[in-house]
Amino acid sequence: MNRAEREAAARRILEQAAPQVPAGLYDEAVRRGGRMLRRRALARRTLWLLLCAAVLAFTVWALTVRPWVEPPSQTTPQVTDW
């Protein structure tokens, strides 16, 4: 199929009448789109809640354990002057 044939085929397709859209298609698309948006919003809120809970848990753990402090020595130093 050369360029002229492709252009003629495209013109024939564009000149045809548009097909009829089913009656409830728009309403169904709006309903599904709204449901999809609500699910995404719920997922986003859930992930933010989990992130905040993880940050809070880490903060409580860090304040309780204090991993930045050097642990006390388990052995005593040798006594040299008796």
Rank of each mutant, 00 (worst) to 15 (best):
V69E: 10
L51A: 06
V79C: 03
P71Q: 00
G33V: 01
L63F: 08
A10N: 12
L47I: 04
L63D: 13
V30M: 06
G33R: 12
T75H: 14
G24K: 07
L25Y: 01
A43L: 13
V55I: 09
L56D: 08
V60N: 00
V60M: 02
P22R: 04
A23E: 15
A29T: 11
V65A: 01
Q16S: 10
L14V: 14
A8K: 05
L51N: 00
A23T: 14
R35Q: 08
L37M: 13
L47M: 04
A8V: 08
A62V: 09
W82E: 07
Q16V: 03
D27E: 12
R32K: 10
L14N: 12
R31T: 08
V79K: 12
A8E: 11
L25D: 04
R11Q: 14
I13H: 11
L50E: 00
R6T: 05
Q78T: 15
T59R: 07
V55N: 00
W68F: 04
R32D: 10
N2R: 05
A41C: 13
Q20P: 13
M36S: 11
A62W: 09
L49F: 06
L47P: 02
M1S: 12
A17S: 08
A4S: 06
L49D: 00
A8R: 14
R38C: 04
Q16G: 15
C52H: 05
A41S: 10
Q74W: 04
P77R: 08
L49S: 03
E28I: 03
T46H: 11
A29F: 13
R3Y: 07
L47R: 14
E15W: 12
E28M: 05
V30Y: 13
W82Q: 14
L37A: 10
V60S: 01
R44L: 13
R40V: 07
G24T: 12
E28R: 14
F58I: 02
L25T: 08
A8N: 02
I13D: 07
A8I: 02
V69A: 07
T75G: 11
S73V: 06
R11V: 10
A23G: 06
A10I: 10
S73P: 09
V79T: 05
A41P: 01
V21A: 00
P67F: 15
C52W: 09
S73G: 05
A62E: 02
A53R: 02
P71H: 01
P19K: 00
L49C: 02
A17G: 11
R40D: 09
T75P: 03
W61R: 02
L42G: 15
A8H: 02
N2Y: 13
V69H: 13
E28N: 07
R39G: 13
W61V: 02
L63G: 07
Q20I: 12
V55M: 01
P71R: 02
C52I: 03
E7M: 09
L51Q: 01
C52N: 05
A57Q: 03
E5G: 04
G34C: 05
M1Q: 14
Q20Y: 04
R66N: 04
R6D: 11
R40Y: 09
E5I: 02
M36H: 11
V21G: 00
N2S: 06
R32L: 05
I13L: 15
T59N: 02
V69W: 06
L37S: 03
V21R: 03
E70S: 12
Q74P: 03
